[in-house]
């Protein structure tokens, strides 16, 4: 099956904005409230593997974008399911019931971007150590200022210049 035929099949899902990006890659944009249904629809179509959950900070539009990177072994094709959620209230529903591995991906998105996934039981600290600041992958987190305040302010133990 070609990309166009699959895109037409996906477009039958109500509210889906489908675009063929290049060979073997299809982007599917849906409203946030239909994201879970669309994911179930795609999984039924054959996109059985959740490769990753990516997160984009669109700070000017005041939105976070979640990109669910799906892969189909039958069709040898990728589908990017994109949903946008408001930046002020970064909450979404977990996809753990469809793909159990979503737990780990969502845990990372929670730590790095501060997005809360409802019904995910394991949103505990993951990679960062002793973190008590803004989530570091947000666009308004100033890494240089953080480094200056935290690491560069520490004096050399044996004296000497910075």
């Amino acid at each position: 099956m070609s990309e166009q035929e699959i895109a037409e099949r996906i477009a039958k899902f109500p509210g889906a904005d489908v675009e063929v990006l290049r060979k073997g890659q299809i982007a599917v944009k849906v409203p946030a409230e239909k994201g879970h249904d669309a994911a179930a629809y795609l999984k039924k179509m054959g996109f059985a593997h959740l490769v990753a959950v990516e997160y984009v900070d669109w700070i000017k539009e005041n939105e976070f974008e979640l990109v669910y990177n799906l892969f189909s072994y039958k069709m040898k094709m990728r589908a990017f399911l994109k949903v946008r959620i408001p930046r002020d209230k970064p909450e979404y529903i977990t996809f753990m019931d469809l793909w159990p591995i979503a737990m780990t991906h969502e845990r990372e998105a929670h730590e790095m971007m501060g997005i809360v996934f409802r019904k995910n039981p394991n949103l505990t600290p993951f990679i960062l150590e002793d973190w008590k600041n803004l989530p570091p992958m947000r666009k308004d987190f100033d890494s240089r200022k953080y480094v200056k305040d935290k690491y560069d302010s520490i004096p050399f133990a044996e004296g000497g210049e910075q």
Partner: peptide, 16 residues
């Protein structure tokens, strides 16, 4: 990685 939030920059501040 001098401006990374994750890496400490000068190791000789913590051990000789």
């Amino acid at each position: 990685y001098w401006d990374s939030y994750a890496t400490i920059n000068h190791l000789d501040k913590y051990i000789p």
